[in-house]
């Protein structure tokens, strides 16, 4: 029998331990969340969040719609804010790398990734919630955009940087203006990289609770008004997770399932497919 060095054995064991824990977490969400989702079915995606059973008796309808709609809306608005900023900054960082502004922007972007997300939440609380005297979905969106901007900027910069100089020069040598080379001709080449950045940023933002707790607030009813408070899946998991209500604990699992298996995982998988398709 071949002897395996104990060091290699340890590497295998630790790796399987970490991956085992990951599968445990995913499995727990699946086992506890999916049955709830299946039990309530469509209702879960359309009905409002039920009041506590304790006070009002069993609710006629049980849903997570306010949290689902809230997460989608908050993240979508955050994308509208962060994409133009991140994209333009990313192109700047790649194409005008020698300017002081580009260097500073790259530096700040990699710094922003390291800023604790709760800090963004508290900052936006002071900056927007206090002056406007109320929680709002859009305050949450601004907080999330602070988290998304650096991802979009750095991925965009990377996508443009990966295009060989020679190809950019090929366009310029045809007398095509630089802006058209960057935004039109290279579009197909950089799109996979930029889209990957956007999807990763979306996946990150969708799961964040800390920036939303004190900005977006809470609402039991579906609201599409960005200037009103809004629930979100991540905040719901936290809020209901500490509850003693059986139903709310179940809803936390269902929200975990929807967040991980129906929003974040698809985003991640699509981002991987986009990159794969790009390689020719």
């Amino acid at each position: 029998m071949r002897k395996v060095h104990p060091g290699i054995l340890a590497i295998y064991l630790l790796s399987f331990l970490a991956l085992g824990l990951l599968l445990w977490v995913l499995g727990a969400i699946l086992v506890n969340g999916l049955p709830v989702v299946l039990h309530y079915g469509v209702q879960l995606f359309t009905a409002n969040i039920p009041p506590p059973v304790f006070f009002f008796g069993p609710p006629p309808e049980v849903g997570l719609a306010p949290a689902i709609v809230g997460t989608l809306m908050i993240v979508f608005i955050a994308l509208l804010i962060s994409f133009p900023i991140g994209f333009l900054a990313g192109v700047l960082i790649s194409e005008f790398y020698y300017t002081r502004l580009a260097k500073a922007a790259e530096h700040v972007a990699s710094l922003l990734v390291e800023v604790p997300t709760i800090a963004a939440g508290i900052a936006i609380y002071w900056l927007i919630v206090v002056p406007t005297q109320g929680f709002s979905a859009i305050a949450g969106s601004v907080a999330l955009s602070l988290i998304m901007i650096p991802y979009i900027a750095l991925y965009t910069a990377e996508a443009y940087r990966k295009v060989p100089k020679l190809i950019k020069e090929g366009g310029l040598a045809l007398g095509i203006p630089y802006s058209k080379v960057l935004f039109k001709i290279l579009r197909g080449l950089v799109a996979p990289g930029v889209i990957t950045g956007v999807l990763i940023a979306l996946a990150k933002a969708a799961g964040e609770a800390a920036p939303l707790l004190f900005t977006a607030g809470w609402s039991n009813k579906v609201s599409l008004d960005p200037f009103q408070p809004s629930a979100s899946l991540s905040v719901l998991i936290y809020k209901f997770g500490f509850s003693s209500q059986e139903l709310w604990l179940k809803l936390s699992w269902a929200a975990s399932f929807i967040l991980v298996f129906m929003i974040i995982l698809p985003l991640i998988i699509i981002s991987k497919l986009v990159v794969r398709k790009h390689e020719f």
């Binding site: 133009p84 900023i85 333009l88 900054a89 922007a105 710094l111 936006i124 609380y125 650096p150």
Partner: peptide, 20 residues
């Protein structure tokens, strides 16, 4: 045009730090 993006990224760090 690109500079606008760059400046706003710099602004982002102030949006975090200044209110705090």
């Amino acid at each position: 045009l690109l500079g606008i993006g760059g400046v706003l990224v710099l602004a982002a760090i102030f949006v975090v730090l200044f209110p705090l």
